[in-house]
Structure formats: C-alpha cells, structure tokens
Design a protein around this nucleic acid. Sequence first.
DNA 1: GCAAAAGTGTTGAGCTTACACCCATGA
DNA 2: TCATGGGTGTAAGCTCAACACTTTTGC
Lengths: 236, 236
Amino acid sequence: MYASSANISERQAAPPPLAISTVIFALRPSESSGRPTLWIPLVRRIREPFLGLWALPGGPPSAVESLQDAASRNLAETTGLAPEYLEQLYAFGGLHRSPGQRVVSIVYWALVQPTEAAMAAESENVKWFRADRLGDLAFDHQHIIDYALGRLRNKVAYGSVAYHLLGEYFTLAQVREVYEAVLDRELDPANFRRELKASPEIVETDKYLQGGKHRPPRLYRFTGLPGLDPDNRSTP
Amino acid sequence: MYASSANISERQAAPPPLAISTVIFALRPSESSGRPTLWIPLVRRIREPFLGLWALPGGPPSAVESLQDAASRNLAETTGLAPEYLEQLYAFGGLHRSPGQRVVSIVYWALVQPTEAAMAAESENVKWFRADRLGDLAFDHQHIIDYALGRLRNKVAYGSVAYHLLGEYFTLAQVREVYEAVLDRELDPANFRRELKASPEIVETDKYLQGGKHRPPRLYRFTGLPGLDPDNRSTP
DNA sequence: GCAAAAGTGTTGAGCTTACACCCATGA
DNA sequence: TCATGGGTGTAAGCTCAACACTTTTGC
C-alpha cells in the first residue's frame, strides 16, 4: 500500500525517466495568401532514435527548477524565445512512445509574439514549420502537436489567449485574423468587433495604425492577466 | 541543446523522481441533509514526512505500465475501487511540495459509482471524507484537491461527466441532485429536465423507480462514450 | 382528498446572427 | 471619385430562465 504521492522509495522497479517538451506557436504570414497562419519551431534529432527527423524542443528537467521553469529554459536554449504565454499541456507516458527506453514527457505549450518569433534563432537544426504542414516527426510528436492544436483552438474559442500571439498594440481586425487562422473559419467582422468591445480586458487607445491602404484602424491593448499555474500552493 | 523529449541521457543532474496520485470522487448521502454530497477517500501516512496525516492515494509508476494504468492499479490497491471514469488532472512539480526530496506527481482524478463506493475497503488507514470538510492534509494535497474540484465543476457544467457518479439507471432528478451537489446551487427542475432530454446521449427506458413517496419517476440510461485518453497515438 | 414530486406548457428577456449601411482613407 | 476595409445600426430568430400548470403516486 502506497500512502503518498511524494515518497517513491517504497517500490523496487526504477520509475521511468522524465522529460519536458514544448509546443510553441507563433503567427507568421502565409507565403501564399499573406494572411497570418500558425507556425511551430522544431529541432532536428542529432542522434538515434529518429536521427535526422524533426522533433519538439525538449530535454530533462534539472533538479533545482520547477517544471514550468524547465520548459522556459529549454525553450530559450533551443530557439532563443521568451514566450508570452506558457501552460502545461499534458503528461504523456505511454509505454511505446519511444523505441528503446520508455520516457514520460510532461509537455507544455507556448505562444510567442510576432516580434519575438521574427528574431528567433533559426539554424541548420532549428527550423519553423507551418503547423498544418509538418513532415514526418520523431516519436509521438505529431500526435502531441495535434492535441496542442485542439487545446489552442478550445482556449481561443472561449478564453483570452489570442492576444498573446499579437504584439502590445493591435487592431480588432488583427484579432479576428488570429481567430480565423486558429479556428479555420471566417467570422463576421461586425459582430466580432462588437464582442471584443464588450470585453473589459480590451481597452481602446488613441493610436491608429498608419500605413495601410485604407482608413486607419484604431489600436487596442489587452489588459487581462496571464492566468496562473496551478502548481503553486498558497501555503508554503 | 536538447533535441528530444525522449532522450534524457544528455544532461548531468538526476531528474526528480516521479509519482502517481489520484483524487477519487464519489457520492454519498450527507449525514445531516441526506442529500448526495461529494466524498473522497484518503490514506493515512505511515511514515515521515507528514506521518499520521491523511493524503491522496498514490505511489510510483512501474516501468511496465502506462500512467493511467498506474493510477488504476494504485486505486485498486489502496481502496479496492474500479473507477467508472479516470482522467489526468495535472502534473505537479514545484520545488517545495515535499520537505526533503523533490518529487513530481502526475495526478489523476476519478469518479466512482455509488455501488462501488459503498463496498469500498475502509480501514484504519483508509477513510472517506466529505470533500468540503477535510482536515489538515499532507504535502500540497489540499491544493491538488481544490484544483480537482474546480475541474470537476467545470466538466459537470459543460460535459457529460455527472452520469459516471451514478449507477446504470437513474432518474433525471438524481442527475439534477448531482449537479446541485457539485455546483453548489439549486437548479430549476423543469428546465433541467428539458435540457437533459434534449441530449441524445440520455435515453429513456421503460423502467420506473418504485418505492418512493410519490409518483414514480422514469429511469434513464447514459449511452455516451467515456472520452479517450490523449496519451495514445494512432500510429503505433 | 391531500401533499409532494414528476412532468408539461408558455412567455418574455436577452443574446446571437445576418446583413444593410455609413465613414475615412490611399490611389 | 472609387474601391476597400473600418466601423455602426437593426431586425429576425433562437436560447434560456422563470413560473404556472397538470399528472400520478403514497398516505
């Protein structure tokens, strides 16, 4: 009988090793249409298994950092990115995720702003891909990305997540484009703008976006809070 | 640079050990009002730290079982229960969850039917508590339970989870009582029944619940699917 | 018959949706 | 001045919440 989740010295078999991975989303204009689409940075496998294939950035957590910090560090090390939004996705621990040793991966998902994404480190072994056009990936990473996409869609549909894919100032039409890219369907501009203006987290500024072809749209800011990591108890 | 979530041999420090815990919910009639309320089984700590305090059932996963199977086994070993519903809750991995060694806990949450719950093993070291009246718990387990309660409330409000707390046959009023217990507010019986009858997953039977004080209500069944664990990829 | 829960009907408020329309700007 | 996206108005339709009402049982 095991009476605690925090004492593992009570069983013989070695528990499976742990790794942290992150699915990172950013917006980039599509090469064809120019409209914003979702992109994901991947890193190339430099050893077996799956040598040469693309995979999610990840690695083992160190003993002295929280899981979320591990995801952050990892993300900075591989891609140079500092995410605007970072949330735990799921812990994957199936027996056959990896040939050879079995690994438990705690996966995070992140949103980065386009300014960040633009100056992200890209190299021989780090490349960005359109989220809907990935090739063959290592391990179960395609499956993980599909799950992350589902979560993103869900969070966008309800919550206040879309703004983390945009810069500090944005037009309401830009927000709509994010929704349209993520949900993959068109939305009524008139009704969408009304809905956003009803939300108190979106505040109007007195700036306008200049340089467009037509009437310059007003810029807005998002003032909502990022949402807390549940892995923090109030009684330390 | 760490190119994979499934290869941990690339870093020096030993990763933190892993444990699985489960928050188990079942309905029992309240001693005072007789109306159904949420109860949770806990196990007593039989060693330091937190010796003597109550804690969530849990233990290390073995190397040869999936995380969900580990939660299931664990649950059977400690409480004798076979849950009707089992879903991953969150991976808790803060640095200060446990005095002494740092542990990462992947926590599941479960719903068991009242028949199961009634014949659950109870002993000196395993007891059931009202979810809203727990004493001091070991580790961050109170915090975890609060989070699980939030998830349960959310899933009940939207989804099709309430039926897993009931037996195979149930009246619509019983479903309403579950909602009322979980959400902690009263619901309009007329509107609630209409909403349920609109759902195709709830099918009418030709049985009636006899033995009540008044008009015998019709019994219904739930035909929905349990919802899949995301930790299963389709390409094996 | 009476009390109480099972079960049905109805109505108004409010929100969503579709779309007509005006506004401001670059070319 | 015209094309285009920014931005506003509005009416139909639907959903939801409140509550009056009928039905069926045990006592």
